[in-house]
Computed example of a mutant assay.
Amino acid sequence: MLRPRPETPAPGQESVWDYPRPPRVEPVGARVTIRLGGQLVVDTTDAVRVLETSHPPVYYLPTADFAVGALADAEGSSFCEFKGAARYLDLRGGGEVRSACAWNYPDPSPGYELLRDRVAVYAAPMDECTVGGEVVTPQPGGFYGGWITKAVVGPFKGVPGSMGW
């Protein structure tokens, strides 16, 4: 499949087509929050994001910044050729539970050590996820966990027909 035509970023925006492969991990200076069941389950200014060609950023938040009892082990695991073995987590907040909606890398591969003791969360099953006060849009499709903000342009992997990108 041919690479799609990237959108042209406006000033202050990034094109996901300029992101590298293998992915890069970098600190984020913005405040990141997640609400579930009406409860603020995480509020941090210590996030990192993973940037990979054709994907909106995936935000990894410190495990220690989640509300007490918000994270619980879930069934399942997966493997990323770059980051290593991932485990899945349930997220709880305000009396609600979202099964296997989060993941982390307990022992990340070399070059991805910044992901240790951090958790990424799918935005779609949450009440609200924000970066710098902006409510994010979930990455299309059900497999990838990127968060779309006004700061990034696509097209984004996950839309129908993007499997070969």
Rank of each mutant, 00 (worst) to 15 (best):
R3S: 15
E7F: 07
T8E: 14
P9Y: 07
P9R: 04
G12I: 06
S15P: 06
D18Q: 14
Y19P: 14
Y19K: 13
P20R: 15
P20G: 14
R21T: 10
P22S: 10
R24G: 05
V25A: 05
P27Y: 11
V28W: 13
A30T: 01
A30M: 07
A30Y: 02
V32D: 09
T33Y: 06
T33V: 07
R35F: 15
R35P: 15
G37L: 11
G38Q: 15
G38L: 13
T44F: 00
T45N: 04
D46V: 01
V48Q: 10
R49N: 00
E52K: 05
E52V: 04
P57N: 11
Y60S: 13
L61K: 01
P62V: 01
T63A: 13
D65Y: 01
D65G: 02
D65E: 10
F66G: 02
A67N: 00
G69Q: 08
G69S: 04
L71E: 05
A72P: 00
D73M: 03
D73Y: 01
A74T: 02
E75C: 01
G76Y: 03
S77Q: 08
S78A: 12
A86M: 14
R87G: 15
L89S: 05
D90N: 11
L91T: 14
L91E: 14
G93N: 05
G93A: 12
G95N: 09
G95W: 10
R98E: 15
A100Q: 10
A102Q: 09
P108M: 01
S109V: 02
P110K: 00
P110S: 04
G111Q: 08
Y112D: 07
Y112V: 04
L115P: 03
R116N: 11
R116Y: 02
D117S: 12
D117G: 06
R118Q: 04
V119W: 02
V119N: 05
A120P: 07
A123S: 10
A124C: 05
V131L: 10
V131D: 03
G132H: 10
G133N: 07
G133F: 07
V136Y: 12
V136N: 05
P138D: 08
G142I: 11
Y144I: 06
Y144M: 14
G145E: 14
G146M: 09
G146P: 08
I148P: 09
K150R: 08
K150I: 00
K150V: 02
A151K: 06
V152H: 05
K157R: 08
G161R: 00
G161H: 02
S162Q: 03
S162K: 02
S162H: 02
